[in-house]
Design a binder for these strands. Sequence first.
RNA 1: GCCGACGUGGCGGAAUUGGUAGACGCGCUGGAUUCAAAAUCCAGUUCUUUCGGGAGUGUGGGUUCGAUUCCCACCGUCGGUACCA
Length: 954
Amino acid sequence: MQYNHRDAEARVKAFWKDQEVYKVEVNTSKPKYYVLDMFPYPSGAGLHVGHPLGYIASDIYSRYKRQSGYNVLHPMGYDAFGLPAEQYAIQTGVHPADSTAKNIQQYRSQLDNIGFDYDWSREVQTCDPKYYKWTQWIFIQLFEHYYCTKSNKAKPIADLIKHLGAKGTSELTAFGGNETNVTSEEWKAMTAVEQAQLLMQYRLAYRKESFVNWCEELGTVLANDEVKDGVSERGGYPVIKKPMLQWSLRITAYAERLLEGLNTLEWSESLKTIQRNWIGKSSGAQVFFKLENSDDAIEVFTTRPDTIFGVTYMVLAPEHDLVKEITTPGQQAEVEAYVAMASAKSEIDRMAEQKTVSGAFTGAFAKHPFTGNPLPIWISEYVLKDYGTGAIMAVPAEDARDNRFAKQFDLPITQVQDKSQFPDAQIGDKVGRMINSDFLNGLKVKEAIKLAIQRLYDSGVGSRQRNYKLRDANYSRQRYWGEPFPIVYNREQIAQTLTLAELPLELPELEDFKPTREGKSPLARVESWTNTDSGKRETDTMPGFAGSSWYFLRYMDSTNDDVFVSEEAVNYWKEVDLYIGGTEHAVGHLMYSRFWHKFLYDLGYVPTQEPFKKLINQGMIQGVIESIYLDKNKHDGSNRFLCAGLAKQEGLEHFTPIPIHIDFVTDYGSENSHINLDGIKKFLDWRPEYKDAIFECSKGIFQNGKFTSKTGDDSLLITHSEVGKMSKSKYNVINPDHIIEQYGADCFRMYEMFLGPIEQSKPWDTNGIEGVSKFIKKFWSLYFDENQTLRVTDEDASKEQLATLHKAIQKVKKDIEGFSFNTCVSAFMVAVNELKKSQTSSKKVLQPLLKLLAPFAPFLTEHIWLELGNTSSIHLSEYPIFEEKYLQSDSIIYPVCVNGKKRADLETSPDTDKDTLIELAKALSPMQKWLSEGEVVKTIVVPNRMINFVIKSG
RNA sequence: GCCGACGUGGCGGAAUUGGUAGACGCGCUGGAUUCAAAAUCCAGUUCUUUCGGGAGUGUGGGUUCGAUUCCCACCGUCGGUACCA
């Protein structure tokens, strides 16, 4: 008889529920530990085998911590607002709330099947008004605060107003717009609208013009994801970048603190590097280039002010405000065409474009700040509007991109650095001494930068400046399925916030989810909702990251209706101790959450500066995408599918790969992946539009249900396999429920861990799960005999058995703490193989072993634990303690090497001294041959590790 | 393009401070058991070999008595690139 996972899991689930094993409360008598999983978005495809990878790891860790005496908070909830639900609603008319609720239900049942230890009483859903009430409240706080650069924290706008009334903008230490300077009298004389506009320059949540992907034909704003190659993914219509008034968050105010905070975090160096690069701090100079024939100036930021005499032209981003103004009539047509071309491209495409250099001359010139020489002003897509000032001074001698550009358009190149002493130096290397640079001549780069900045400052055309690549976050979406802004515009169009009592501002009911033709959110159509006594409501909604930027705080006190989190709860749980999730969130979610957390810290609502102390990145479990090649040209009016090999011969450019359901494919993911006759029939049932298609492979042709063989063999249409995301649209989603049904949840959990290191990505492959399944059966057979009778006794364990146990305890504990779960599974297998061999039935070994396995296999171990007569859960039991004394051994085996290569083994006692070791090793019979081949020139003995002879053959 | 990660048998992977390359598992081969199969158990399994060895951790170089591990250059794959979440 063997372990029946279906019965055991049902019994154990009921037991956990009945005993409320995972319910957790503030308990000051125990140390706290907060384990968090990244918020899932409940997609319509359900949970696939990739999602739980991190969840299983955090579940193991949280169970380990609980057994080690901690009060563990391990919650779960849903990031439930989002684009896919809205898209689904537009297509099917199903309300996003309904489809989302259904998806959440599906996720919940799948999560429960895996046996996670979540305290579900703390679940949150971002689309729940009880939750988003507080998302709206935090937004109001951001709106009502500015960033003080002197005290380095957020302060109330009321303080700012007081200052403006007393001193105007002089001595103002507020982060933000330095465009406008006013005296207190001017401030007082301003109209309410003007005052509101000035304050917008400082608010942490503010409105400004930002660029959106605008699709005229669809009459809507598109997400980057919905744009492919400059056209809409749906319909293939052109998409351009269009400026629109949008809410933004002034995350740039926190750039320095976000950078510094990284030093305090236990995150991987690579992740911190990603964030540092994203923030992109650089120091250099701000320089103004006056325009010829105009009072305006072009502001640039440069990290290389030393090369100022190498500037031979200027480049503006095509979207730069000045472009329209300065373009001469003769150049207008060319410039407009170029701007239109560039606005149709995504930022990635623009940055990735390296081989072809493009640009257009505006006809205008700027003046060099020192020489007064005219500098032609160009526009080019390699300069981005939102990076720095959207303009650059071009130094083709010291910048590779400028250099290519200058060569392409025959612009002059002035060398400013003598690098003759450094033959290997590349463009941009900061070596050599300055030449052709007036007062900078002869200086080294470092000195030249200093002096150049000084002279710019003295001439009133520049100054030292720090720059950050980080940009303010666009916070508006023209969508229905997101948090409504708690904002009403009064008759003067001034934004007013709602009071706490008026929150939550709920989404109105809606039947048509299409956006309006002007590109506004569908909310704009609900006049009964948008019109209020005090004015019109904001119709944009908040982006996906709004709800997920603070959810970890809500878990601490998820049902509190008076505050977003109580002081008592947040002072006990403090911050997340361990956060597990994918690297895809490296700069989005993880940056926004840190920003919000620091803001809430400034306001005194949270006691920590950083929300996530330790972070582990889980790799992705990828899917295999299988596709078959469809000829782009029809053959005799029929579609034609071709074997992958034949398609390659004819040239893949003539074919479109059509992704197919992996269930139809035999040997999917391998070189021989193919669909056989049965697979083709399944494919045709699934995609009837291809029912007349020809399927051609090297062995014959299939059409209209009949296979005509050329060789007498069966048909095998070779498919194309590639590794990629597991996604509903690629028809390659693998549902954990199926695996669990067949093998049990514990086997599924352990197999996912066994696949490899948690942080590594790998394609899903069910081959190999048998090994884990066998392990579970073997483990079971240590506790029960063939008649399902408990075979555990009180007899003593042998020395070897205890050594096996303690070797396992030591290894598993160490590996859990090092997040190396795959090697834990191996360690369990080794232990069970050894114990099985020695036929132990001693409770002194088997009970600790059960506890050791509990975090990995919570159902199996709980079931056996209860069978052993225990009444409270094994997951509340104490973790086994490792004792060194059981591992002491009276012999050690040294590898004996010649020139680093192992040639013999030497078994000896651990306290043998060095000279004896050498003597013993030299005496070994396999060594005679090697020693006779030459002279020993060196002998290396590493205690307890190895012995190496360096032999020189003579 | 830029930023980050990864690359080891037929396959997933192990070797965490430079010290026995291939733990553990899958697959495969042979055997035991069985009327037979499944299941289970035992043995073998990097390649090559004249059976002494030799080669071998993406490629090419370097440091070292010794390199999967450290350094340099390159190739490939994956993730992010600011409105997918």
